[in-house]
């Protein structure tokens, strides 16, 4: 139980990227350093209380205060400062091979990839990255301050309305990680997350090409369009062109629904449409629980067919 946070998809102690490795190293250096200092201080107190029977001279006491209280802490702080400052430029080093824009909205993530041919590929609520390549993430927000944090890959960076921040990620290990919003942004702040899929570069390129293409679906989208879903959501290649809510073009490929809150299964898709406001308080999408079960089923089935 105690070690529950030390590994897994969302742990800064189990790094899968260069930035997170540096942060984890800094953490361990500080932890070990703090433990040593604690032992020395407590050891000195015990020595003074138990074994040292003669009081020290005033000069010796002042010397201990001077070295233990001022000189050594200054040297330790200077060393930590150098260590920390050295990390910062490294975190942005290198020409990025991939540029992605992520925008925070209450309570989901708009993701735009710059494809190799210069075109833009819209997606949402999931980030895919090639392992071993630098990816520059441009961060902004359209409503309130959010914060972009993938503990396994890097430290966090705020998403501030009216300002563009920049973060360079160097994922190194393939796998599925979890990113979160790390700045309180409203009622569903805790339900604003996203899966991060780090893939082999070749697989990533194939995925991006597929993601750029319009939706391929043989299922009937009548219920989806008739109930106005297309007013807020885009499914490229269909009449659904709304841009208020997340793009759903290749929805069936995603790991999760509702911005990282539920696994993407048929049951959950249906549940999210019917109980949106219960699952995600404060969300702009209304619950569609009043729809006839057949219509709900048809919409959920259509979403499940969007590969």
């Amino acid at each position: 139980m105690l070690l529950g946070a030390c590994s897994g998809p969302q742990s800064a102690l189990d790094p899968a990227g260069r930035e997170a490795s540096e942060v984890a190293l800094l953490f361990w250096v500080m932890l070990v350093g703090a433990a040593i200092i604690w032992l020395v201080v407590i050891g000195a107190a015990m020595f003074g209380g138990k074994w040292q029977k003669q009081p020290l001279s005033e000069r010796a006491g002042l010397r201990i205060v001077l070295y233990g209280g001022a000189v050594i802490p200054t040297i330790v702080l200077a060393a930590l400062l150098v260590f920390g400052l050295r990390l910062m430029p490294m975190l942005r080093a290198g020409e990025p091979e991939l540029r992605i824009t992520m925008s925070g909205e209450q309570y989901w993530w708009r993701v735009t990839y710059a494809a190799p041919d210069g075109s833009k590929v819209e997606s949402a609520n999931e980030l895919r990255l090639p392992a071993g390549r630098a990816a520059e993430i441009t961060l902004d927000s359209v409503d309130v301050i959010h914060s972009f944090w993938i503990p396994s890959l890097a430290g966090k960076m705020d998403m501030i309305p009216g300002r563009t921040n920049r973060l360079v990620l160097h994922p190194e290990r393939t796998g599925i990680y979890r990113g979160v919003c790390a700045e309180f942004c409203g009622r569903s702040h805790a339900f604003m997350a996203f899966p991060v899929v780090v893939m082999e570069p070749a697989a990533f390129e194939a995925w991006l090409a597929r993601e750029a293409a319009p939706a391929l679906s043989k299922a009937d989208n009548g219920a989806f369009l008739a109930n106005g879903c297309g007013g807020c959501h885009t499914v490229r290649g269909t009449q659904a062109t709304g841009s208020i809510g997340p793009d759903l073009t290749h929805f069936a490929d995603r790991q999760s629904i509702g911005a990282g809150i539920l696994p993407n299964t048929p049951d959950n898709r249906r549940r999210f449409i019917a109980e949106t406001e219960t699952l995600k308080p404060g969300v702009r999408m209304p619950s569609f629980g009043a729809l006839p079960p057949a219509e709900l089923g048809a919409i959920a089935a259509y979403l499940g067919s969007l590969e």
Binding site: L81, V82, L85, R86, M88, P89, R92, A93, T164, R166
Partner: peptide, 11 residues
């Protein structure tokens, strides 16, 4: 000290 390490102006 930051002047020693600063590598670029953040955009």
């Amino acid at each position: 000290m930051p002047a020693l390490f600063i590598a670029e102006c953040m955009r």
